[in-house]
Design a binder for these strands. Structure first.
Length: 103
DNA sequence: GGTTTGACCCTAA
DNA sequence: ATTAGGGCCAAAC
């Protein structure tokens, strides 16, 4: 039985380039729908090479708290793969209707 | 093994 | 529509 962390890593790897998923969505894919916060904890500590930039919150906003990878970096990474990111007074928004991944 | 820690989310007002 | 407040739960201490 894989650990929750392993399933989260797997789910994040499955997000296609140019799409985004929410923390809750990733938690659900990792078979623990209410553990959205834990997804954030895992991504924060994860030394794994992952497309972590494709995970955002339910409002379509970049929500990151990692000094080494600030929101600006996440926005840049997403733009590099073709996702439109709107900036509004220091916050970054993505249109979920266009970019949300539907497995 | 109890407590703390969070890159969250839902509901009610 | 917008916003507090409380619940959640796996990992790390």
């Amino acid at each position: 039985m894989p650990t929750f962390e392993q399933r989260v890593i797997q789910a994040v790897r499955n997000i296609p380039q140019g799409r985004v998923a929410t923390y809750g969505q990733v938690a659900a894919l990792a078979s623990s729908p209410r553990a959205a916060r834990t997804v954030g904890v895992i991504l924060r500590r994860s030394a794994e090479v992952l497309p972590w930039q494709r995970v955002i919150n339910r409002e379509g906003r970049i929500s990151i708290s990692n000094i080494e990878f600030p929101a600006e970096i996440q926005a840049e990474l997403l733009r590099q793969e073709g996702v439109a990111v709107d900036e509004k007074d220091g916050q970054y928004f993505i249109d979920l209707r266009r970019y949300l991944w539907k497995p």
